[in-house]
Amino acid sequence: MQTLLQTQLQAALNAADDTDAPPQDRAEMLMEIAMGLQQRPQSAQQIADAVHLYELALDLAPGALQRARIAARLGTALQALPDLDDDRSNEHLEQALMRLQTALPVLQAEGSAAEAAEVELNLGLVLQALSGSGRARIQDAINAYLRALRVFTRADHPQEFAILHNNLAVAYLAIPATDERGRLREALAVQSFEEVLKVVNLVDHPSEYAMIQNNLGNALQVATTSHVLENHLRALAAYDEALRVRTPHDTPLAYANTIANKANVLRRLEQDAARDVSQADLSDPLIDALALVREAGALFARHGEADKAALMAQAASEIEIDLGLRRTHAS
């Protein structure tokens, strides 16, 4: 028995061969069915089928604007094709890049501002993915995101605004901080995560909220600043916010990642000259960090993350040495 999607796919292929219908209508139908396959794919084959339908629609479409819209959708489908291996993945991404770059000037000239901005967003995603293998510049991805933000404002397009700022933050942090511009990028990454949190909240988007708070904590840890203690305390607060959602029962690996990150910042707090850990009303950061890395290590081991469990065991050994040295100096 054919599924509904299989029936729709066959109908689309039949429509493509129906010479009685105008080419524009046939292309439109193919694109709509391809979008349906792409939006909620149940298998990798459905993404591949969507790519095929977009390509058929592109061959049929008579007008430049329609072809640009189809090419833009085709670019997103190519981007979504599963990674069979690195070479095939890069090939699909480069094809997606070509389709998006072809569509963009036409949509800028003849389409809506939102259509062009959506292409800029997807262009940034493709460039960012290709930059990992040295096939594109991460700065070009950043520039595409910034252009998209001229249209996708927080007030009018909150979802796209949040996606763009999250991607911007990740892109800023991907560039090594080797000079003063690196310090600026780190600060911009923190600022972008904070912009996302103006849209993403604990009640409506709990998992996204936890992810962004975790990432914000990480960005605050690595940011070069003269306010080191303040950043470390802000990072702790961000991790604690993430842990309002992430629990060892419901999200054990995400929880383990966050408490491992929190342990790292607690170890840094021990080194902050401005913090007097001998005060009775303050907990001991090293002892707290040791408990967290042990808990994270146990969770990683239980869920098959052997490499991460080994890193936690190493961190626990280092903390134990630090505690021993501290006791020696105190005596």
Rank of each mutant, 00 (worst) to 15 (best):
L13G: 01
L13I: 12
D18A: 07
D18C: 02
T19L: 12
D20T: 15
Q24C: 01
Q24F: 01
Q24P: 01
R26W: 02
R26V: 01
M29A: 00
L30G: 00
L30N: 00
E32D: 07
E32Q: 07
G36M: 06
Q39N: 09
Q39M: 13
Q39V: 06
R40Q: 15
S43Y: 09
A44R: 09
I47W: 12
A48E: 15
D49E: 11
V51T: 12
D59Y: 00
D59N: 05
L60Q: 02
L60G: 00
A64H: 05
L65Q: 14
R69T: 00
I70W: 00
A72N: 01
L74S: 05
G75S: 08
G75R: 03
L78A: 10
Q79W: 13
L81A: 05
D87R: 13
D87T: 13
N90P: 02
N90G: 03
R99F: 06
T102R: 05
L107P: 00
A109K: 13
S112M: 09
S112K: 10
G124E: 11
G124W: 13
L130T: 03
S133L: 03
G134V: 08
I138G: 02
I138A: 04
Q139R: 10
Q139W: 07
D140C: 08
Y145N: 07
R147M: 04
R147E: 11
V151P: 03
T153K: 12
Q159M: 09
A162C: 09
A162F: 11
N166W: 13
L168F: 02
Y172R: 05
Y172K: 05
A174S: 15
A174D: 14
E180T: 11
G182A: 10
L188A: 14
V190W: 15
K198N: 15
N201Y: 07
N201A: 05
N201K: 06
P206V: 08
S207V: 12
S207H: 07
Y209C: 05
L220V: 09
Q221I: 04
L229E: 11
E230H: 15
H232T: 08
R234C: 04
R234V: 03
A237V: 06
D240A: 08
E241N: 12
E241P: 03
T247P: 08
P248C: 08
P248F: 12
N257W: 10
A263G: 14
V265M: 03
V265A: 02
Q271M: 06
Q271R: 13
D272F: 00
A273G: 09
A273K: 06
A274Q: 10
D276F: 01
Q279N: 03
D284H: 06
A291R: 01
L292C: 03
V293T: 12
V293P: 00
R294G: 01
A296S: 15
A298L: 13
L299T: 15
E305W: 11
E305H: 14
A310T: 07
Q314T: 10
A315E: 12
E318W: 04
I321H: 13
R326I: 05
R327C: 03
T328E: 14
A330I: 09
S331R: 14
